[in-house]
Write a protein that binds this DNA or RNA. Structure first.
Length: 280
DNA sequence: GATAATGTTGGTCG
DNA sequence: ACGACCAACATTAT
């Protein structure tokens, strides 16, 4: 669920909540497998007592910089969420990690499916080295995208989901970006013309920025969905063009949106607008 | 009430 | 290099 815009929304929320500068007084892990590294014991011992010096996003990871120079990396996978509470407040079944700060606030990690992972690492750069281009940074240029696409026969949809190429795009924004570019999801990545690469480039940025502007996408009403730290829903569902809109009219041409499965993921597109012709 | 599907990632296996 | 499949889990939709 949480892709780049959702994770950025959480990071913005955490920064706005004056967490930077606070000291982690206590660490409780209620589901040990959430901790990927180091061992559970070291994780708790080394994290306690540290000051949070910065909070940033890289791809779909939250990066907490710590006083020791180490970093706490959190990946929310499908259903991870953060919210503040008082240590006295009742715990829910899916509260798995509790960070209590010096000001008595408790940051609670909630994850119904338990896929999320916490890592305490010496170097964030090293641990996140495998990730590709940040699509909203200066390193993401049409030329850099073209270089990554070149020679690949993999479908564009699979390419966009590959975090080693462009980092932070998930199923929602991949489908939205391909619709915006007028490209069929099954198009071989290396087959794009220079013009099509430019369409894809600008469409990726547009789709992500729309998500950001709306503070993320919250689909439907289930609790397993995206909610900000403050518990707010994202507003981007209303602006989705194709994702989970199977059978509904394409906003550009009115044709019913198709659904198929590509790269083992549900994939939504407009048969008429995404035939790799010129974008309107 | 059983079964399928779900926004992610990382692994295996051909 | 690539894709098919699975595993980690729980909830919701069918």
């Amino acid at each position: 669920m949480p892709e780049l815009p959702e994770v950025q929304t959480l990071v913005d929320d955490l920064r706005a909540s004056s967490l930077i500068g606070q000291t982690i007084k206590d660490v409780q892990v209620r589901w040990p497998r959430i901790v990927a590294e180091p061992t559970l014991e070291l994780f708790c011992r080394q994290l306690a007592g540290q000051r949070v010096s910065d909070i940033q996003r890289r791809a779909k990871y939250l990066v907490f910089s710590l006083g020791s120079g180490q970093s706490l990396l959190v990946h929310l996978r499908m259903t991870g969420k953060f919210a503040f509470a008082s240590p006295k407040d009742a715990l829910e079944a899916h509260h798995h990690v509790l960070l209590t700060f010096g000001d008595e606030r408790q940051l609670r990690y909630h994850d119904t499916r338990k896929f999320g992972r916490f890592s305490l690492v010496q170097s964030a750069e090293e641990a996140l080295r495998h990730l590709g281009l940040e699509p909203l940074s200066a390193e993401f240029t049409p030329e850099a995208l073209e270089q990554r696409l070149r020679g690949r026969r993999t479908p564009l949809k699979a390419f966009l989901l590959d975090q080693r190429q462009v980092a932070g795009i998930g199923n929602i924004y991949a489908d939205e970006a391909l619709w915006g570019a007028g490209l069929h999801p099954a198009t071989p990545a290396g087959s794009l013309s220079q013009e099509q690469v430019h369409f894809l480039y600008s469409s990726i940025i547009e789709a992500l920025q729309r998500g950001l502007r709306n503070m993320g996408t919250t689909l439907g009403n289930s609790q397993a969905n995206f909610y900000s730290v403050a518990g707010r829903r994202g507003r981007n569902e209303d602006e989705l063009r194709v994702f989970r809109r199977t059978g509904l009219p394409c906003p550009r041409c009115g044709q019913a949106i198709e659904r198929t499965v590509l790269a083992q993921r549900s994939t939504h597109y407009c048969l008429r607008c995404q035939q790799n012709g010129k974008r309107t």
